[in-house]
Write a protein that binds this DNA or RNA. Structure first.
Lengths: 190, 190
DNA sequence: ATATTTATAGACTAATTAGTCTATATGGAG
DNA sequence: CTCCATATAGACTAATTAGTCTATAAATAT
């Protein structure tokens, strides 16, 4: 067994789900393109839905872990804030499939409960340093969840702009930086 | 014929698509719950995809028309800007199904081309007054499409926050207003 | 070495589903 | 009143698809 079949299945599923959507992708196609048999897929994931959810949680957890590492570093709060933003945007740009998949999942009514719970679970991890920023009057005196929502909205907005633009990498970095200062104009305590 | 069957089909399709997704909703179910026969649905819409796209464009056009009316009013640019934001958020809150459907569609790779073209078409309508705002140094000196993307991101963010919150209508209005001032802090020329 | 668990394969099935086809009905034009 | 186009109905079909079943193979434990 040279390749991990489970990982092959997940990678193939991600690619196909992003191309054709959950329902638009037959399990047989995932299996065949992943180079495994139908039975293997259903051995590892009891149902198709299981696979969809497992893939979502894997991507979200992976991303949340990275953010947590940034937050845990011994930096000044505003530095953390900036780094979390930069990492989020750069991660989305470097992993468009994953970012796309996450959005697709978040807007699938059928999975609303899962995505809501996952978001809530991860937000608890970020809450601490945002609360500190509010307390120290660096951030506007608003609820943590409002700040998180606006933050996510901003990442979403700048991502949409960047994928449609044909700016080269250096230029993109500059745009992301400017987007950060705009975000900060919005968030900072005055 | 007391009710317009086409409208009944669209309304039912919207409800079911939001509940179960495009692929998760059989045409037969749409027809039966709309109280029409299968043949009737396929008489009005040659394919299922036709229905999905027609519904999307109808909702988007309807919304864009409202925004255009606001933009065309003889108001100061900053007033227009605020009104467009307020209307967008309130429209989303008043029509969660439609807003949800739009997002779902926007993140369906299969329809990427359609949604991209529709966005571009509508953006041309908004461009004029944003350009004026930039020229008059009311808005930051950034590309129109960046401003539109961030604007949309902000609407998206505040919507996500508000549907998860249990604030009463009066309180929600207050939150939306604060969200507007935050948006303005971000967008205004300094 | 043997037994047991884990992993893989692929044929098969029962159910579902988009779209077709033919038959009516309804309403307006001449 | 008679045509003809538009609208509606619903049975039917060909294709697709999630999940099952049985058989092995590989790895691990005893």
């Amino acid at each position: 067994m040279e390749v991990n079949k489970q990982e092959k299945i997940q990678a193939t599923a991600l690619r196909l789900f992003v191309a054709d959507g959950f329902h638009g992708t037959p399990t047989a196609k995932i299996a065949s393109e992943a180079g495994v048999a139908n039975g293997t897929l259903f051995y590892h994931y009891k149902t198709k839905e299981d696979l969809v959810v497992a893939l979502y949680n894997k991507i979200k957890d992976e991303h949340a872990e990275n953010l947590q590492a940034i937050i845990n570093r011994e930096d000044f709060i505003t530095t953390k804030f900036k780094n979390v933003f930069l990492h989020s945007v750069n991660w989305a740009l470097a992993n468009p499939d994953k970012f796309y998949y996450i959005q697709q999942f978040n807007f699938s009514p059928h999975f609303a409960k899962v995505s809501h719970e996952t978001l809530a679970r991860h937000t608890r991890g970020y809450a601490g340093f945002i609360e500190e920023g509010i307390r120290k009057k660096l951030l506007k005196q608003q609820p943590v969840s409002l700040i998180v929502s606006m933050f996510n909205g901003h990442v979403y907005g700048i991502y949409q702009y960047l994928i449609a633009s044909d700016a080269d990498p250096t230029e993109k970095e500059k745009i992301i930086n400017e987007a950060y200062y705009m975000l900060w104009d919005m968030m900072k305590y005055m």
